[in-house]
Design a protein around this nucleic acid. Structure first.
Length: 329
DNA sequence: AACTCAGTCAACCGCGCTCCC
DNA sequence: TGGGAGCGCGGTTGACTGAGT
């Protein structure tokens, strides 16, 4: 971050507005106040006019950025929720580095925020995962190709997943439409429910295992309509537990190949790890932040490849939010 | 307490697109 | 049709911060 130039510094000269040196660097609270009150009173217009009329010695571009990334009243503050993380990963797998398009589908988040989050957190995590050998490979002597890294700090193997008793994965949250019908129960945008968002009912339903009648299934819900790459490839059997991993890896342009392995304990560790990550207890999965989704039994154990797809077609059912176009009428 | 270093994130930069004259 | 202005976007920078030593 840059230090704000001292108010009244080089910018406050006797020069005319047009020749006045424009300020750079961090915004002072006074500047924020000016821009905020101007925007609330006048709405968005030509940004150079905004800068001029609001009495700011900033370029219009800087004003625009400050407004979009910081002052906009509909911004959501705070850390990304696990659901948002997953959604970002999923959308990134579909859209690539089109941060603005990803942000348009994450209400209250800015492209800059998402970009930073991706570059600082997710990217690094993926990098670590891609280079993390399986701890069970000590006997094998080399990192196992049978193991599958996940984003949540461990490794999953396909056979682990296959061999786990059904129900073990019940707390593993997913957002991708599963081939099995009884899936998906995450509210990615609780504030939308609170504030009567465009795609969710005014009251947040309690998400429990299985389908919420008349909710995700009947509405044009976000997640059930989110095109999953697997569905794009049409022939791939999907397992929820590996979906995030798969998508993330795809985003790194790596082809996912899941083979059989024998790391059952690892799966358990990973489930617990992820449950902890989401503040979920396997014994008592229901709390205020419950992410409770049932995964199908179709654990992935087949190979699939990355194909090309039509972006517009992929995204046609994914709602976007006009939050980047705030304008006072 | 002092220092180092990695992580975070606000802001800038440059490019490309669109619109208008 | 060409050029300039404005805007949006993605990449990058660099100051700040907190953890580790």
């Amino acid at each position: 971050m840059r230090k704000p130039e001292a108010s009244g510094g080089s910018a406050t000269t006797t020069k005319t507005t047009t020749t006045m040196k424009l300020r750079k660097g961090l915004w002072s609270p006074e500047e924020d106040d000016k821009l905020m009150s101007y925007m609330l009173n006048n709405g968005q217009g030509c940004w150079s006019d905004v800068a001029r009329n609001a009495g700011l010695q900033r370029c219009g571009k800087s004003c625009r950025l400050r407004w979009i990334n910081y002052l906009r009243p509909d911004l959501k503050r705070g850390a990304f929720s696990p659901q948002e993380e997953h959604l970002i990963i999923h959308l990134h797998s579909l859209l690539g580095n089109r941060w603005s398009q990803i942000a348009a589908r994450l209400p209250g988040r800015t492209d800059n925020e998402i970009k930073n989050f991706w570059n600082s957190t997710i990217k690094k995590r993926l990098k670590n995962l891609s280079s993390t050998p399986s701890p069970n490979t000590s006997s094998a002597g080399s990192p196992s190709a049978d193991s599958k890294p996940n984003l949540f700090g461990g490794l999953l193997s396909a056979q682990d997943q296959q061999q786990q008793p059904q129900g073990l994965m019940d707390d593993f949250p997913i957002y991708a439409p599963d081939p099995t019908p009884s899936v998906i129960a995450i509210d990615p945008f609780p504030f939308l429910a609170t504030h009567g968002g465009p795609f969710f009912p005014a009251t947040t339903p309690t998400f429990t295992t299985g389908v919420e009648p008349g909710y995700f299934q009947e509405d044009e819900s976000f997640f059930t309509n989110l095109p999953l790459l697997e569905s794009v490839n049409a022939t791939t059997t999907t397992v929820a537990a590996t979906t995030v991993v798969t998508i993330a890896e795809r985003s790194l342009k790596t082809e996912t190949v899941v083979k059989e392995a024998n790391h059952s304990n690892y799966l358990i560790n990973n489930i617990n790890c992820f449950a902890n990550h989401n503040n979920i207890s396997n014994n008592n999965p229901k709390n205020d932040n419950t992410i409770n989704a049932e995964v199908g039994a179709n654990f992935l154990h087949e190979e699939f490849s990355i194909g090309e797809w039509d972006l517009e077609d992929l995204m046609k059912d994914v709602p976007s939010y006009p939050c980047l176009n705030f304008q006072v009428q």
